[in-house]
């Protein structure tokens, strides 16, 4: 078998097809670039990485808390410290994520075929709210009891109470330490990969009439 015949046979395999597709869509120089466009030199472009940094601390502190059990932080000074670290990193995570959302919303970041990038961001945001909520009701204190009884009434009115019950501590803990964090992390990874594939969105033009041109072009109302 000649080299080219061998290559032809290999290209029929699904692994070779997936590899070709991945490298085509996301070559190494795009996955880990060493240069970026000039418009990135703005504070407005820093909130995505700040959100990811806060998420890293959330995941690390949450892993320590999960491995030590849900009541550990009540009875140990180190536990209280790790719990505080978890709480404040979540506060920063949402703080930076909301500003990231504002900056991207006001520059219409879904332009240039970036719809999937935008949508993965939306899903990550919604999944994060769910993760934060199930975290609140997993605290095993009066606060969590109050929040879960209030949320139970609201959720039962929508009909999801049979599948998502805030008074069921085990279910809430499973959602908080397994299902929702995994969802958030997977979606965030997809979000970052989409940013790499499509590139970071350029800012809108400074002049009003140029912005209108962009808006018209995007809505299909081309001159």
């Amino acid at each position: 078998m000649t080299r080219s015949e061998k290559d032809d046979n290999l290209s029929d395999q699904w692994t070779a097809k997936v590899r070709t597709l991945v490298v085509e869509k996301l070559p190494p120089e795009k996955l880990l670039p060493d240069t970026q466009p000039a418009y990135l030199t703005s504070w407005a472009y820093t909130f995505g990485i700040l959100t990811i940094s806060a998420l890293s601390v959330v995941i690390i502190s949450g892993t320590v808390l999960a491995l030590s059990g849900p009541s550990w932080w009540h009875v140990s000074s180190i536990g209280r410290f790790v719990n505080s670290l978890h709480l404040w990193s979540v506060e920063l995570f949402f703080f930076f994520m909301v500003i990231h959302l504002w900056t991207k919303f006001f520059m219409a970041a879904w332009r240039g075929g970036r719809t999937l990038t935008w949508m993965t961001g939306v899903i990550a945001f919604l999944a994060s709210i769910g993760a934060a909520f199930t975290g609140y009701v997993s605290q095993l204190n009066f606060d969590s009891q109050w929040i879960s009884t209030q949320a139970k009434d609201g959720l039962n009115s929508t009909g999801v109470g049979a599948y998502f019950n805030p008074l069921n501590f085990g279910q809430m803990l499973a959602f908080h330490i397994a299902i929702l964090p995994a969802t958030v992390v997977i979606i965030v990874v997809l979000h970052i990969l989409m940013v790499r594939v499509k590139g970071i969105v350029p800012p809108l033009p400074k002049k009003r009439n140029e912005i209108l041109d962009v808006a018209n072009e995007y809505s299909g109302d081309k001159k």
Binding site: P37, Y39, T41, W43, E91, F95, I99, T103
Partner: peptide, 29 residues
């Protein structure tokens, strides 16, 4: 207070020039 602080940080981030502006930059596209 948190929401007001987010607004402030958002506005400052847009208004404040980045220190990396002094580096050599590559024109987009």
């Amino acid at each position: 207070m948190v929401i007001v602080l987010m607004f402030l940080v958002f506005i400052i981030a847009i208004a404040l020039p980045s220190p990396t502006r002094k580096h050599k930059i590559i024109e987009p596209n």
